[in-house]
């Protein structure tokens, strides 16, 4: 059933987003909650669900910056990079659109319930699936074409190989959208997919000025606030190594010929200082570079 504040836009309706009409397979009807005026050409920021702090940091950085310049951030509300992008846009009071593979009124993934409620209030949540549709696998790969179609360019922040992120990149190419990719470490499995896209000819994005150029925005900032950087002033070899690539304690001990107790204690200290976190797979990685921690 249509929620009281829900809206439906058919193809042919004057409110139907023009950008979608230029895609090979535009949806017949869009179901939505929130502000329908946000369905203008935006920037899609996408990445792996099984993300690392690196991917989430990049999503946060670029989405936050573009949103603060008035660009609508489009993504899929999935765990990991997608949610980081939505959150970054909301943090700067920017506009963001979440495209779901289930009904626009359905909370999926479940842990995104709160986030989706905020987006419904301050942005828009849309879907081509009717109200109340439960999440189905095929619907999610179909919705990727809408994410690509609604955008002027698609920014891939982190993708492993193979990855669902690829299907969005494919749809972007079919719809003649620009594919932008943040390069990652060639050693990191989580970055193999994004680096592959670069090899295939995608545009690399390494800082906001490059993103500004692609999006046709002026006044790219020079301030350090908008670059991915970690405090390496202490010339800390372990920290430097982790910034390059997340590593396990055993590998660090071998790399630096240190005993494991020293490494474990140093990592514990870095973690306590909020500089690194332990990933679910036991590797240590620099924290998400969101905002400066007050010291």
């Amino acid at each position: 059933m249509r929620p009281p504040d829900g809206w439906e836009i058919d193809k042919g309706d004057p409110r139907y987003p023009e950008t979608l009409l230029t895609t090979p397979d535009p949806p017949k009807r869009i179901y939505g909650l929130g502000n329908p005026n946000l369905l203008t050409p935006g920037l899609a920021v996408i990445g792996a669900r099984k993300s690392t702090p690196y991917g989430r940091s990049c999503a946060h950085l670029f989405a936050g910056w573009a949103a603060s310049r008035g660009v609508v951030i489009v993504s899929g509300a999935a765990v990991g990079c997608d949610q980081a992008a939505h959150r970054a846009a909301l943090e700067v009071d920017g506009a963001t659109v979440a495209v779901l593979g289930c009904g626009a009124d359905v909370d999926y993934p479940r842990d995104a319930t709160q986030l989706l409620d905020v987006i419904r209030a301050r942005g828009a949540v849309i879907s081509e699936q009717p109200w109340g549709s439960t999440p189905r696998r095929w619907a999610f790969s179909r919705r990727n074409r809408i994410i690509a179609g609604l955008s002027h360019s698609v920014l891939v922040v982190e993708a492993s190989l193979p990855s669902g992120t690829f299907s969005t990149a494919d749809h972007a190419l079919e719809a003649d959208r620009e594919v932008l990719v943040v390069p990652g470490s060639i050693l990191s499995p989580e970055c193999r997919g994004s680096n592959r896209l670069l090899v295939q000819g995608a545009t690399p994005i390494t800082d906001v000025s490059e993103l500004a150029a692609v999006l046709g925005l002026l006044g790219a900032p020079e301030d350090a606030e908008h670059t991915v950087s970690h405090d390496l002033s202490r010339r800390d070899a372990i920290m430097t190594a982790l910034v390059a690539n997340p590593m396990r304690p055993d590998d660090l001990a071998r790399e630096f010929a240190l005993d494991i107790v020293t490494v474990a204690r140093r990592l514990g200290e870095l973690e306590r200082d909020g500089k690194v976190i332990r990933l679910r797979d036991g590797r240590y990685s620099p924290v998400e570079n969101k905002r400066r921690r007050p010291h």
């Binding site: 107790v261 474990a264 204690r265 140093r266 990592l267 514990g268 973690e271 306590r272 332990r278 679910r280």
Partner: peptide, 17 residues
């Protein structure tokens, strides 16, 4: 001591990510 705490923290249970 502080270094004992730091090492102990690296053996804690990982919750979520």
């Amino acid at each position: 001591m502080s270094e004992h705490l730091d090492e102990a923290a690296s053996y804690r249970i990982l919750e979520g990510r």
